[in-house]
Amino acid sequence: MADVLNALVLLANFLIVPGLTYGSQLALGALGVTLIYSVLRFSNFGHGEIMSFGTMFTIFFTWLFQGWGLSIKPLPTALLALPFGILATMALVMIMDKTVYRYHRENKSSNVIFLIVSIGTMFVIGGIVRFAIGPADQIFFDGTRFIMKAREFKQMTGLSEGLAIKTTQGITIVTAVIVVAFIWWFLNKTRTGKSMRAYSDNENLALLSGIDPARVVMVAWLLVAALAAIAGTLYGLDKSFKPFTYMQLLLPIFAAAIVGGVGNPLGAIAGGYVVALSEIAVTFAYKRVVGYLVAEEHAPETLLQLLSTDYKIAVSFIILVIVLVIKPTGLFSGKTL
């Protein structure tokens, strides 16, 4: 019995908790990509950089507050700075929309042109971020590191495997739940949210109903800015902030959005967890887990690992390609925003 529990704890510690954390970060990112896709109808290649920009401003405000001696221990100061990061990101996307996207919207540019435009914004924002904060790694987490330490868990349960939960993991999952609940409430219960769904569903009919497209687009961008800043900050708190990594996050995020069916917010969230958990599950070495479950003489000699950990990020690309080829509408298709 203890062996089964040990095996489960081992899985929880190395697979489920990190998977849920990373999955929440991807889900929030994918939600942003999906919102833009539903309302503006293009795949936003600049999303990773928007996340990076929001995180950068959160870091700036974190430093500022730390300088003032402000602290909300045991929580990281970054949580206090996050609203300001969100505001800065909102300002950025508003400027971007007014100067760049609005023109192409009014001229009804094709969605490939929108896509290339988003690549342009990726360059510009990427440049701004690297110019302002530099390309190096930034660790901006302060506060208490662990909610539960492996050693404490072992003492508590008497098991030989420990379960550690980092503060950042707890914050990520809780924040993701709150944000997702808010987005669901906004889209399904508020007038503005419903008008956004209507616009995404049928643009012409939305116009006939008196829904103002400019307003829908603006609200969508503001939501996306908030989502991006939150997702970016959570990722940065959990790992670290490095501009290059954020550009690389774009593909797992696209993978999550597409796996869930682009344009479907619930799908995007599910897609985030599917991608994150498979990344870890495919590169996880099951040797010790199996070791607990089978008799000693059958214990495996190899690592029982499907793919080496070097391929961890590649897993999301592989999932992405497989889904695109087999079921491009996504696993949870059928329902749009």
Binding site: I116, G120, T121, F123, V124, G126, I128
Partner: peptide, 10 residues
């Protein structure tokens, strides 16, 4: 240069 190239593209 990142920024410049992006702006030129836009």
């Amino acid at each position: 240069r990142l920024m410049t190239v992006g702006i030129v593209l836009l």
